[in-house]
């Protein structure tokens, strides 16, 4: 499906037209829970981008150099999850030990996304669409950046809503879901821009 496509086109497509959260609805849990504060949302977005980029490449190699030669493609779900979890844990420990400043801005978010479905979803898309390693790298980065963009936008909107008079029954998750719906519709506007899914 993705054979021969320019990796940069794939990256733009992943960030905008098939946005991880607003078109594919992946990573919803932390998207709603951590979008209350702009700074926090920014940190989580950064972490998702970082992890998605690296796990895409990592799993690309695990899939094509271990699972495919052995004919064990059907094991990919469990293997991907394990690789992601281990990578995230490892990264978190290293950052925590060696860079307290980076830990506060990035490391602390890592455990939150160990089992984030956006990460696994990104990796699986990459496999299903037969991306090359380079395409996978930029696809992972693009997907993460798209998720990052969406959570910053949502956090900014929620920040504005704080002073607004919202019916109490809708306040909180209710109004957030409505906003996400409207944001998803707005992102459909990008769909003509890049001719791939």
């Amino acid at each position: 499906m993705g054979v021969g496509l320019n990796p940069f086109v794939i990256m733009i497509a992943a960030a905008l037209t098939s946005n991880m959260i607003l078109s594919n609805f992946l990573g919803m849990c932390s998207f709603i829970a951590v979008s209350r504060d702009l700074k926090t949302a920014n940190g989580l977005g950064l972490a998702v981008t970082f992890v998605l980029t690296f796990t895409s490449v990592l799993n690309h190699f695990v899939y094509y150099y271990v699972l495919v030669p052995l004919g064990l493609e059907y094991l990919r779900f469990i293997v991907f999850i394990v690789v992601i979890a281990a990578f995230v844990q490892l990264l978190e420990m290293v950052i925590d030990r060696f860079s307290p400043a980076l830990y506060i801005s990035l490391g602390i978010f890592l455990p939150l996304i160990t089992v984030n479905c956006a990460i696994l979803g990104g990796v699986l898309f990459m496999i299903i669409r037969d991306y090359s390693a380079m395409q996978g790298l930029l696809f992972g980065f693009g997907s993460g950046a798209g998720w990052w963009l969406a959570i910053i936008a949502l956090a900014a909107i929620r920040g504005r809503l704080r002073e607004k008079d919202i019916p109490p029954q809708l306040n909180g998750t209710g109004i957030t879901l409505i906003i996400i719906g409207i944001m998803a519709m707005a992102f459909i506007g990008f769909s003509g821009m890049v001719p791939v899914r």
Partner: peptide
């Protein structure tokens, strides 16, 4: 294969848990 992957990863994790 599954045990191999799990073993490699957990060895890595244990190692870094012990060192880092």
């Amino acid at each position: 294969v599954i045990s191999g992957i799990a073993a490699v990863l957990s060895a890595l994790l244990n190692l870094s848990d012990a060192l880092v």
